[in-house]
């Protein structure tokens, strides 16, 4: 058997303070009030959500605020069945892309409100194009997880 060599156990803990800036601050203030904000690009006409300070395609400022619908259609999903650092909740859970009604990009969040224990049952319920609506946490702190998940209508 090959000799085992020593390893060094070490750790780095670094504190950060990340700036939201004005646009993201307003978006997360909206979260606290159960509102989802987007911004509209006046050049290409797209409504972007979450709100952006500029349109990534047109590279112009997006100053037009829009409170977007809390309903939408499922674009893609994955049933996540393993634990990872920073996971939003205990697995299994469903990561989802949702096209909120009236918007022009997909919103990345969770699909919930159904029994997730059995994947086969989940596959019978969850399908792209299904209608979903936002479900909020009782206590909200201005965070992306103030939205608990999107549930079938």
């Amino acid at each position: 058997m090959a000799k085992e060599y020593k390893t060094l156990k070490t750790e780095i803990r670094l504190p950060y303070e990340l700036s939201y800036g004005p646009v993201w601050t307003r978006f997360f203030e909206g979260m606290r009030e159960k509102k989802i904000y987007g911004t509209k690009c006046e050049k290409c006409g797209r409504i972007l959500v979450p709100a952006r300070s500029f349109c990534p395609r047109c590279f112009v400022d997006t100053n037009a605020w829009v409170e977007v619908a809390q309903t939408g259609k499922l674009t893609a999903w994955s049933y996540i069945n393993y634990r990872y650092f920073g996971m939003p909740t205990e697995p299994p859970f469903i990561g989802a892309l949702i096209r909120l009604d009236g918007t022009d990009v997909d919103f990345l969040h969770l699909l919930g409100g159904i029994d997730l224990a059995d994947l086969d049952k989940v596959r019978g319920i969850v399908h792209n194009g299904m209608q979903l609506k936002a479900v909020w946490q009782e206590e909200r702190i201005g965070h992306i997880l103030d939205l608990e998940h999107f549930a079938p209508v």
Binding site: A76, W77, S78, I80, Y82, Y84, F85, G86, M87, P88, G95, A96, L97, L108, H109, L110, I144, L145
Partner: peptide, 12 residues
């Protein structure tokens, strides 16, 4: 939170 360490988004 949602990329699931990469496999999540690739699966989606």
């Amino acid at each position: 939170f949602f990329i699931a360490g990469a496999p999540g988004v690739f699966s989606m």
